[in-house]
Design a protein around this nucleic acid. Sequence first.
DNA 1: GTCTATAGTCGGATAGAC
DNA 2: GTCTATCCGACTATAGAC
Lengths: 217, 217
Amino acid sequence: MSTRPPAIDDRLLNTAVDQFGRFGLEGASTRAIAAAAGTAMSSITYHFGGKEGLYLAAARHIAACIRERLREPVSRSSALAAADGIDAAIDALMATVDGFIGIMTASESAPWARFMVREQMAPTAAFDILYAEVMEGMARHATSLLMRIGGDRLGEQEARLKALAIFGQALVFRVARATVLRTTGWTDITAPETAAIRATVRSHTIAILESIRGDRP
Amino acid sequence: MSTRPPAIDDRLLNTAVDQFGRFGLEGASTRAIAAAAGTAMSSITYHFGGKEGLYLAAARHIAACIRERLREPVSRSSALAAADGIDAAIDALMATVDGFIGIMTASESAPWARFMVREQMAPTAAFDILYAEVMEGMARHATSLLMRIGGDRLGEQEARLKALAIFGQALVFRVARATVLRTTGWTDITAPETAAIRATVRSHTIAILESIRGDRP
DNA sequence: GTCTATAGTCGGATAGAC
DNA sequence: GTCTATCCGACTATAGAC
């Protein structure tokens, strides 16, 4: 069985992520989504039960795409984290941050991000899906690594805030994309720009982690 | 002249920022905005020429609010930056970051952020207004301070990326608010939570700036 | 499963009363 | 300046042909 002709519900999901991300649940129109997916509007009713069902399915679709994209960095990070010692924890955290930078700079994440940020700032039931499937795991993983690095000098809540701030350094390059392009003069973020971002965020993160390590009494 | 009863166009602007931020330009309805502002829909036509005019006016309104809120931190930072030396530049940058954290944690920035992030990820003419009035100045200011701190070891483009990443640490606490609340267990971000965020971002930023200073040959 | 046709609601713009 | 009344297009949902 070839995978060439995408099933109609797959095409609906992809266009739904795009349109809902741009215009929101009430702003997007099922007419436009169906038309862009090359089908009739009533297909949405048939496959997803209606507009809201399609919206939640779009959230699950995004979560699955991100998990797929994170699979390799996460397993590499976990392998590194299996070793003992603070250096292993640092390497593991850097691998996770690298994976996150990869997503934030990839062009495919643009529609995901529009959808997700909307949910972050005005959450609906879709946020529960996204949090449980994507954010929670990353936050837990990064927090536990930071606590290993910080030892007993670092409380769990402090570690959580540090993890959020560290990821924020990469998040800005997706979420404030228009400002990034204007200030840098870039027209797009491709391989060389990603390398520059990676170098910046890596050096910052190393500086932050060294300062945690250096905080020992 | 008292300022007590807000003029109808002021009420329209505030509700417009909220509704456009939540639902976008096409998702929000002028009927709903007018109703929430306590007036007739045709007032929007009269005062702003239509839906699009109101949208651009909302962007200008946000820019004015943010500039007002940044006035004091910016002048403090500029005063600190007037002194010679790297330490003065570091103090000035920290003051700017502090001001930015203040906005990102303030509850009043929630509607501004919804509107602005939407423009960042799918820019319209409103982004030109926001960039020119708000982002450009902050980016330039922070970049020039970073170049003073880095000396000739730091290129302008590097400094720009560093500025973006540093601000990203604070941005995440507004833009990924739902995730922040879930992972920390907080129900809101008020004074004590802001203090914790401030401590985290300050310590990270100092570590980053020290690493730049330490990069000298 | 996918389509067309239809019903009922709500959208923005505009004209005109006051 | 602010309101009400009206126009017409676009929306979601649903019924039913094939």
